[in-house]
Nucleic acid binder design. Sequence first.
DNA 1: CAGAGAATGTGATTTGTATCACAATTTTAT
DNA 2: ATAAAATTGTGATACAAATCACATTCTCTG
Lengths: 226, 226
Amino acid sequence: MENKCMLCNYKSVAETKLTEAELGELSCNCLTVSFKKGDSIIRQGTYSTNVAYLKSGLAKIHIEGPYHVQVVRIVKPANYLGLPTTFGDKVNQYSVTAVENSEVCFIDITYFRKLLTLNHDFSNQIIVELCKGEIESYQKCVNRTQKQVRGKVADVLLDFSDNIYRSDKFVVQINQEDLGNLVDASRESVSRVLNDFSREGIIRISGKEVEILNKEMLQMISKHGW
Amino acid sequence: MENKCMLCNYKSVAETKLTEAELGELSCNCLTVSFKKGDSIIRQGTYSTNVAYLKSGLAKIHIEGPYHVQVVRIVKPANYLGLPTTFGDKVNQYSVTAVENSEVCFIDITYFRKLLTLNHDFSNQIIVELCKGEIESYQKCVNRTQKQVRGKVADVLLDFSDNIYRSDKFVVQINQEDLGNLVDASRESVSRVLNDFSREGIIRISGKEVEILNKEMLQMISKHGW
DNA sequence: CAGAGAATGTGATTTGTATCACAATTTTAT
DNA sequence: ATAAAATTGTGATACAAATCACATTCTCTG
């Protein structure tokens, strides 16, 4: 039997700490599933029996709020999709949906737990990632609640450019409604700000493609919140 | 030498998983410090060299936002104060301040790391707590951004009553300014809502003491966001 | 390729809450 | 005990953004 996890080019940082033998056993306890854009990967309120890991594509994590959905964050490949929801509670506390066509590995939770006890470098890396995630979520929340819409939209554009797509030019796969849910703004406000930025020569929009023309200005807007 | 950590009545859930020997060694790697109300326990931007743990009292975690401070959460005894900030980054990403006179144990980070590798029940519990913390922070953020001030103030009152003080009658040690920073509202709005609740017979206020008279109503207001 | 449905653009109106300004009260230090 | 400082209460005003109501433009799908 081949060691498919060892040959996999999309390992998480934690998985690079695993031995050949551990990766071999992981291969037997892991199932890769393809999802189409828009497909639900994890559903809030259902039982969580596997650790989900995004191998390729793009996904959004979202929670049901008192008024409307909130997109908590966008997850790019080589990251776990639902560690907190899998370990913190028996029932999933949030939903995950594919934003682009994606491949997701489902790792058996029992084996994942075993890995945590077997390999300290692995468990250490998981802890570090959880810590980083929490700090990031604090930071995101401050931005969301204190900045005004222009600042928040500037934030997402910079995040897309610097972290998600790693390019000044990218195709946004998320509609303005969801963009609004991600930064806590209405669909209409997102539309207005995006067009304002375009008119001001900060970005160029053609269809779903966005090009950042003046990153310094975006950073200014992001920093000062307007 | 006495095993002070073993005799300690304020162990974290994770610490209850430690063996007698481990607790003994912990005693040698842990220092208890007293803080007065208002004292700074951890300062954002400084190096983090210890894991902080709240033994008694009450503390608030807060971050510097673009406009003003945001109180991220209130921590009650037998909980770690800065796991994410200690493990996620070399530099503290948030500040912690004593809300009441408090005792804090500072655990040497090297020994804490050693404990994580030595005792799987311990590290597992830490992971579970980190996961719960992240989910909680998502939930808090949704509430903060989607509910209006009445709903958010109802939320804190319920949190104080159900989780922090575990009583329908308690003395709020946080002023309205900070209460505002905790729920993202202005000091004036908090004052108005608190007095509205009082006039409506939902709570009774005398000085810093608050008594919840109609918890069902508060839950209604919290749930519906107004 | 036409027609339906989804997504986006844009003005007018409404609204919740921040901000300002100051009074009143409580707490703290001398 | 008393002045000073901090905290709280409350009206008036300002303002950012949500909501509403359509128009327009994309994008599937039969």
